[in-house]
Amino acid sequence: MSIQFCGWETYFDGRKHLKPGQQPERGHGYSMYHGTHKDSARAIITSGFRPSAGGTLGQGVYCSRVIQKAMGYPGNCSPNDRVVLLLRVRVGRVKKIDAQNWNLATTWHQNGYDTAWIPPSGGLEEDCVWDPSRLTVVGIAHCTDPGTKSDLEKLIKQHAKSQARADNGTQGNCKVCGKDGGASHSVDKCWGCAERICPFMVKHVCKKRS
């Protein structure tokens, strides 16, 4: 059986990891970190993020490409209760927030941006993502308790499998490409427009690039 791929217009950055001062590019997907309490980590893995109501960059989900930044959160608990989640983040359209445009620090989304980025300037950089669906937990980057880390990693795998079953359907044809779902294949989201895609599609034209 041959599989035809054509017309795909979306970005993938093979590096994945950005340097602290490197500006993220529109439409790319990057690895970042998010610090949370070990009890909250389970809910995030299974149900997704709940955006913060406020902060330096206003409403959104806060993360950083620097693990040391994430390891300091949350600030009101013991370091042994903290877990750092490894994320895959589809940044979308990014606004750099510095001294020249600090007036957009909390209104960047209303001005058409998906992610706000504060570059490092005497501190550690941070990012704020408006839409929680742009973030996917893919691993545990730091956890002092080996048992908790193992449990969370198993939960990540279980959730990924259940999500794949929900996307593909346990029987019949794949809901995305229409092909037989008996032999399971992964369903993901386009890095650019977040539309559901799978490797068996003949064509996908990214809405943000068309």
Rank of each mutant, 00 (worst) to 15 (best):
P79T: 11
P79E: 05
P79A: 11
P79F: 11
N80K: 13
D81T: 03
D81I: 01
R82T: 02
V83A: 04
L85Y: 01
L86A: 14
L86G: 11
L86V: 10
R88A: 14
R90I: 04
R90S: 13
V91L: 07
R93C: 09
K95D: 00
K95T: 03
I97Q: 01
D98W: 01
D98C: 06
D98N: 12
A99Q: 12
Q100F: 04
N101P: 08
L104P: 05
L104I: 09
L104W: 08
A105P: 00
A105G: 05
T106I: 14
T107F: 04
W108Y: 06
W108G: 00
W108F: 03
H109M: 09
H109Q: 12
Q110S: 14
G112M: 07
Y113W: 06
D114M: 03
P120C: 12
S121R: 08
S121T: 07
S121C: 12
G122K: 00
G122E: 01
L124S: 09
L124T: 07
L124Y: 04
E125T: 07
E125H: 06
E125F: 02
E125G: 08
E125D: 13
E126A: 10
D127F: 15
D127H: 15
D127K: 13
C128W: 03
W130Y: 15
W130H: 14
D131P: 02
D131H: 11
P132H: 07
P132G: 08
S133K: 13
R134W: 04
L135S: 01
T136M: 06
T136H: 10
T136W: 05
T136G: 04
V138W: 02
G139T: 07
G139Q: 01
G139S: 05
I140Q: 01
I140R: 01
H142I: 09
C143M: 03
T144A: 10
T144P: 10
P146C: 02
G147L: 15
T148Q: 08
K149Q: 13
K149G: 07
S150F: 09
L152S: 04
E153Y: 07
L155H: 02
I156C: 04
K157S: 07
Q158I: 14
A160Q: 09
S162Y: 06
Q163M: 13
A164D: 13
A164Q: 12
A164H: 04
A164E: 11
R165G: 14
R165C: 15
R165D: 15
A166R: 03
G172Q: 09
G172E: 03
N173P: 10
C174R: 02
C174P: 02
K175R: 14
K175T: 08
C177N: 04
G181C: 06
G182P: 03
A183T: 14
S184G: 14
S184W: 10
S186F: 06
V187G: 01
V187S: 05
K189P: 04
C190M: 05
C190Q: 03
W191P: 14
W191Y: 15
G192S: 14
G192V: 09
C193R: 02
A194C: 11
A194R: 06
I197P: 01
I197Y: 00
